[in-house]
Simulated scan of single mutants.
Amino acid sequence: MKKYLFSLGFILILFSCKDDKKTLQAGEIVTSADFVAFYPEVNLPFSVADTTLLKKQNDSMLLELNTFSQFIPDSIWRKDFGKASPKVYALGRAVEKEKENYLFTALVAGSKRAAYLACFSKDNKFLQAMTLVRTGFDNYSSAYGMLDKKFQITTYRDTKKTGGDLIYKRNVYFYDRNGDNFTLIVTEPNEDIIQDVFNPIDTLAANNKFSGDYVQNDRNFVSVRDGKNASEIIFFVHFEKNGGKCNGELKGNARFISPTVAQFVKSDNPCSVEFTFSGSKVTMKEKGGCGSYRDIQCFFSGSYFKKKASTSKGKEKVK
């Protein structure tokens, strides 16, 4: 009997040790695979609200800031926290089978708090990251960010204006592995999607078929307005890539060289850009060197989706 009990106890100890090995501690993170595995797996949909950020975080999920910055560029969060050294908490991880890992992280520095969503490849390589929700920065009444079962990302915020009117903003994105970015696919009223970037052609007429705002997010967009005739468009491009380290802006007139392709050619330098329109999308491609209008390590390129005209603007046109 004693022999049986001893054997049973030994087996239980073995299983206990095996389970302990599965629990990775923050101080044991060495590789990107360790980093991804540290985040507890969560079920979808998974959301993080501003009220969630105000609660006390789980200290067992605390990460060293230096460790976090080894695997996710600090340019992602420094635009919010500046020189502060926020505490970092792993909130959860969602896995798209045979595709990407999505990591949710909360950063806390006093009253300023933010949650970020980072995308890693199936072999644990960092791809992109974006802000899901913030509190302590803006005067929103409520806000949240969510990843649903279709791996679509929703950001939402609302605020009350003078007089009690509630305005809100809901954006829906997906990770585009071909373009390696978070692409905006839905934006709902009623704040302007292009924030904090001056758009010099915003108020020009936008009545032609291809006129409108084509966006990836609020810092990367192509605005198209009516030209002097049907064979010409006026455009303005603004992009910020690699966490704001590579930026570009270009404004000009482009002429259609086919029914769906407009070309911009700069007469006094080699800069040339083509805009190909297809349905509700425009694809931009730099054909000639436009280094005078952008940083050296990025180009005027990528696909942008057309933003639906707001209801209020539509009503104004009817008048």
Rank of each mutant, 00 (worst) to 15 (best):
M130P: 00
T135S: 14
A114M: 11
L127H: 01
P73R: 10
D34V: 04
S69E: 15
K87Q: 11
Y39A: 03
Q128R: 14
A90V: 08
V133P: 00
L127Q: 08
P40V: 07
R78H: 02
T51S: 14
D123H: 07
Y102H: 07
L53N: 08
T105G: 11
V88N: 05
K112G: 15
V48C: 12
E96L: 04
L54C: 03
T131Y: 01
L63Y: 03
K112M: 15
V88E: 02
S60Y: 14
I76D: 06
L54K: 12
D50F: 11
V133Y: 06
T131E: 12
M146E: 15
A90I: 06
M61Q: 15
V36E: 02
A49E: 14
T135Y: 13
I153S: 05
L63W: 11
A129S: 13
K55R: 03
L65Y: 07
C119S: 11
E98C: 05
A143C: 06
A90C: 08
L63M: 05
L107K: 15
F151Y: 12
D148I: 07
N43P: 00
K150P: 00
A49N: 12
K56F: 06
C119T: 13
E98A: 14
D50I: 11
N58S: 03
A49C: 05
E100W: 04
S111T: 12
A143R: 04
A118R: 07
N124C: 02
D148Y: 14
R78C: 02
D59P: 13
E96H: 12
K87N: 02
G92N: 09
T155Q: 10
P45I: 01
Y144I: 08
Q57D: 02
F151I: 07
T155P: 00
K56R: 03
D80Q: 08
A115L: 12
S47P: 01
K125M: 09
Y102E: 08
A114T: 07
S85G: 01
Q57R: 00
D74Q: 13
E41K: 11
L103Y: 01
K122P: 08
R113S: 15
N101P: 01
G110P: 07
L65Q: 01
K122H: 12
G136I: 03
E100Q: 09
Y116M: 03
D59R: 15
Y140N: 10
R93Y: 00
D50E: 14
Y102M: 04
N139E: 09
R113I: 10
N66Y: 01
I76Y: 10
N43Q: 05
A37E: 09
F120N: 06
R134W: 02
D138V: 05
S69C: 11
S121A: 05
S75Q: 12
A109Y: 15
V95L: 03
G136P: 15
K87R: 13
L107Q: 11
V108F: 13
I72A: 14
M61G: 05
F126E: 00
